Simulated assay, not measured.
Amino acid sequence: MIELSQHLENEKIDFQIIDVNITTKDAMGEMYFTMMSEFAEL
């Protein structure tokens, strides 16, 4: 997930989770996505 997130960021593509209204366009959304990705990897 982290690699995918970095790839999307490099390509200037924002990620949006519709169910919980999270987007990587802002700092809070990016932090949430990063934290959830880390938990998933554990």
Rank of each mutant, 00 (worst) to 15 (best):
F15T: 05
M1S: 07
N10S: 11
Q16Y: 07
E41Y: 05
N21R: 15
E41A: 13
K12Y: 07
F39N: 06
I22L: 06
D14A: 08
F33L: 07
T34N: 09
K12E: 09
Q16W: 10
E38S: 12
Q16N: 15
F15E: 05
H7V: 09
D26F: 02
E30L: 12
I18N: 05
K25W: 02
M31P: 02
I18C: 12
I22R: 00
F39H: 14
G29I: 05
H7L: 15
M35V: 14
F39Y: 11
M36K: 12
H7A: 08
S37N: 08
L8I: 01
T23N: 10
T24R: 00
L4Q: 08
T24D: 00
M28C: 05
V20F: 09
Y32G: 06
T34K: 12
M35F: 08
N10E: 11
F15G: 01
M28E: 15
N10R: 12
I13Q: 06
Y32F: 13
T24E: 01
H7I: 11
V20I: 13
S37Y: 01
G29P: 03
E41S: 15
D14W: 10
N21V: 07
F33P: 02
T34D: 03
L8K: 03
E3A: 09
S5P: 00
E38L: 15
D26P: 01
F39L: 15
T24V: 02
E38M: 14
I18E: 10
E3L: 09
D19T: 07
M28H: 12
T24Q: 00
G29R: 01
A40D: 06
I2K: 08
D19K: 13
L42P: 04
E9P: 00
E30Y: 06
D19P: 02
K12P: 01
Q6F: 10
Q16D: 12
T23P: 03
I17D: 10
I18L: 15
E30D: 08
M36S: 12
N21A: 13
A40W: 04
E41C: 08
I2R: 09
D26L: 02
S5Q: 14
M28D: 15
A40K: 15
N21D: 14
A27V: 13
Q6L: 09
T24Y: 00
A27W: 06
S5N: 13
N21T: 08
L4P: 00
I13K: 07
N10I: 01
G29A: 01
E38G: 05
S37W: 00
A27M: 07
K12S: 10
F15A: 04
S37A: 08
M35Q: 11
F15M: 07
M1A: 14
T34A: 04
Q6M: 09
E41D: 14
L42M: 10
E3P: 04
A40Q: 05
T34Y: 03
L42A: 09
E3S: 07
Q6W: 04
T24L: 00
T23R: 03
K12I: 01
F33G: 01
E9T: 06
E38T: 14
H7F: 14
I17Y: 14
E38V: 15
M31H: 11
I22C: 02
L8P: 00
E38P: 00
T34C: 02
Y32T: 15
I22E: 01
M31Q: 11
E3C: 07
Y32H: 09
L4I: 14
A27L: 10
H7K: 14
V20H: 13
E30C: 05
T34G: 05
G29E: 02
E41M: 13
